[in-house]
Design a protein around this nucleic acid. Sequence first.
DNA 1: AAGCTTTAGTTCATTGCCTGAACTATATGA
DNA 2: TCATATAGTTCAGGCAATGAACTAAAGCTT
Lengths: 408, 408
Amino acid sequence: MVMPAPAVAGPGGAAPGSVGDVRRSNLALVLGAIAEFPPGAHPSRAQVAGATGLTKASVSSLVLDLLDAGIIREIGLNPQGRGRPGVGLELSPSRAVLGMEINVDYISAAVVDLTGTVLAREEQERDNRNRPDGPVLAALAALAARVRSTVGEQGIEVLGGGLAVPGLVDPALARVLTAPNLGWVNVDLDLDALLPEAPLGVELFNEANAAALAELRHRPDGASNFLFVSGEVGVGGGIVIGSELFTGPHGHAGEVGHIVVDPDGGHCSCGGTGCLETVAGQDAIFTAAGLAPDGGSRSTLMSLLLQALEAGEPRAVSAVDGAGRCLGIALASTARVVNIDSVVLGGHFAVLEPWLRAPLLESLAKYAPGKYSSSQVTVSSVGESGALLGAAGSVIRSLVEAPHRLHA
Amino acid sequence: MVMPAPAVAGPGGAAPGSVGDVRRSNLALVLGAIAEFPPGAHPSRAQVAGATGLTKASVSSLVLDLLDAGIIREIGLNPQGRGRPGVGLELSPSRAVLGMEINVDYISAAVVDLTGTVLAREEQERDNRNRPDGPVLAALAALAARVRSTVGEQGIEVLGGGLAVPGLVDPALARVLTAPNLGWVNVDLDLDALLPEAPLGVELFNEANAAALAELRHRPDGASNFLFVSGEVGVGGGIVIGSELFTGPHGHAGEVGHIVVDPDGGHCSCGGTGCLETVAGQDAIFTAAGLAPDGGSRSTLMSLLLQALEAGEPRAVSAVDGAGRCLGIALASTARVVNIDSVVLGGHFAVLEPWLRAPLLESLAKYAPGKYSSSQVTVSSVGESGALLGAAGSVIRSLVEAPHRLHA
DNA sequence: AAGCTTTAGTTCATTGCCTGAACTATATGA
DNA sequence: TCATATAGTTCAGGCAATGAACTAAAGCTT
């Protein structure tokens, strides 16, 4: 539940409510209603009143505040058939946030306006394996500045940013707890240096969690409860429940890559034994398929694997088959623990889905019969840049849920 | 997450806020502050003001409402040293709720006043295995009426009730989805018949979830994030995060009994394969220990097992050892999925803890190193009647969180 | 014993916000 | 042109929290 943590805290931990809180809450309600209208359909004040249950008078007043803060703008007229046409409202396209991503072999940044439109995006290849965080962040800051400058002349104001990182993070502390593939342990990131003077600051996300949020926003079926499984070098996951990211008590739930799928299995980089990642991570699959892990870049290895699969090469097929079965075991257990019945496959799991699907469904039927229907096992609808978009989208969403943070 | 669903729903799903909501919210804040004071220490209005951050004036007015509704009462004076003594406030001991439990071989009911004191409690042996729900509920209703009558003369008003059942439930529908050991499938319970005219009605709980809530209330270390594992005929679980029960999108998360701990394992009553319950459920342990499952009642079998363990009988020791290891595997996976780092052992796991602990810790160290410290593996502090007390306590808590439901 | 100090609790004018009704503004259709 | 329908604004009314002033009731001081 993304909810501004109460500042004051008695023994109960809750904050006192005053009349002003009603305003804040309704401000978010109105803005949320405007944001949730389908893109292109700009609601009038009257429609917002209908959607929220507030009176026209209240909505008028609230909308005025949002206009003053520059979060929304009026756009054209909106004929209703008979009667006076309404004035369309939409999230301001001249306010934006910056999405950023650090991954094993690239960094990227994008400017996304409040309506969700990507105004500019740049990716830069860069081997970040076992690189200290300082230079990586410096390179990212430069990339971010470049992307900003490409839209800077259009009078776009960047309000805040989100950074996705492949590892366990503590968002509250802006700390990366562990990122095995970057070689980072307990690294505190100076996020504000990435985006100085942005009123909303920069938030930190786990890569899979950010991708899950992007998936939530772009899902064609509008699913609001699912587990997003991200297959990268590591195997990550993001749990979405009631359209909210479920992060657990310390901010890093959803680590499906380290569910035990084979008690007699091999060692994992996390220190554990028989984790899903030791069977379904990229390196594990490449190795099991007989592709030398140092036989080229990850993308060439993946092409080789796909060729082998299409050729029906037994080792490749068996490697993916095993990954699918073990993924099924992990998802069966996850279904029981968090009561999720819908899975979205991302990263290499999406690419390998044609070969992965059958063993996965078989495994689910064996270990959690009746929990997942096959229509609930789907492929990600956001591509490569899911983490990037999710990080940006989440910052936008947190603004929509607490617009009073902006000057109003 | 126990939270009243918003009644009104626009596209956003949120309800409009008006000034009246502030009153409701602060009413709950004040009542919560009073409830959270240590038993015996009755806070004054001034202390409540300090704890909540509200002004004395507001607290006075809110307290008046709560007094009128009969939820709290004034009790004696509260000397502060210098100055005028405050008037003590406490939850009303003349209002109560009814906790009820249906289990495999007994039914029970208790009257618990709002301060948490058990005023009366009765248990009745009764074999409910494969019994239809009608007669079971009728027997429970009779038991409930009897317990009520024992306190009825003291002018106690019963406001509502909670019923705990060993199976998957949908609390919103008052439906038992499956209760394998009762033989119930998709049974709709007529809960209101148990407690007619109670203003708060009767809520339905999963047994392990209710026990987890009781654990939350009675924990000496005040832990607010933990997994409660209940070893009964089946193996159940309740996840507590931020002092809230985590129930997942459909109300039945925490089913740790059906996490896969052995992909090559045996069939489970749930239809799955290699579930924890097939190794660590009561029947499984008895069988593995060489005790015939029909060699007496469950409690005699348990005594026999304990004797065998104390005598160091190899089969018994190995049975419990195996259960401990597999429990460790399940907890390792759970730690990853929901990010929990603290476990409370309940039911037979509590009884067997001396023999269970070592293999469990070993297993946790192997499969989730660094996730649980040994001090975070503890034994339940509520006994047999945990589910009963938890169901009652949860009803009390939901009243404390929404006192406006009562007439005020 | 009288008075000062300290803390508890109440009263009251003020402010802020939502509401509902009345009103103005702007379109379509007869 | 006028009736009708819908959008949006204005305004009085009500409710809730606030803060300051006030009353209440104790201990401490002299």
